[in-house]
């Protein structure tokens, strides 16, 4: 089976996020006063083969720990979105 997996990587809580703060200030200056916080991050969409959803999830979590996220600074969230039909993407 092929699965569409989405990975969200962002700085851990407590780690300074200069990019997020700067974007927050820019939003405020554009008049979006109600915005309380911005955390900037990265989004990855992966198409992964695997026997079932759990296996895919644990594979991708392993990839996050090794490559997609920097465990020193970043947290990640893995969502297995859906199983893809057939061979094509």
């Amino acid at each position: 089976m092929r699965y569409m997996v989405r990975v969200l990587v962002k700085f851990k809580a407590g780690v300074a996020d200069p990019q997020g703060r700067t974007i927050l200030a820019a939003l405020h200056s554009l008049g979006y006063e109600g915005v309380r916080d911005v955390r900037a991050g990265k989004l990855f969409e992966l198409v992964v083969e695997g026997t079932d959803e759990d296996a895919v999830r644990s594979r991708v979590e392993e990839m996050c720990g090794r490559l997609l996220a920097n465990p020193v600074l970043e947290d990640y969230e893995v969502s297995v979105l859906r199983a893809l039909a057939g061979e094509g993407r």
């Binding site: 700085f11 300074a16 996020d17 700067t22 020193v72």
Partner: peptide
Amino acid sequence: PAVQVGDPF
């Protein structure tokens, strides 16, 4: 956690 993030801006 002793590692800090730089903000050159």
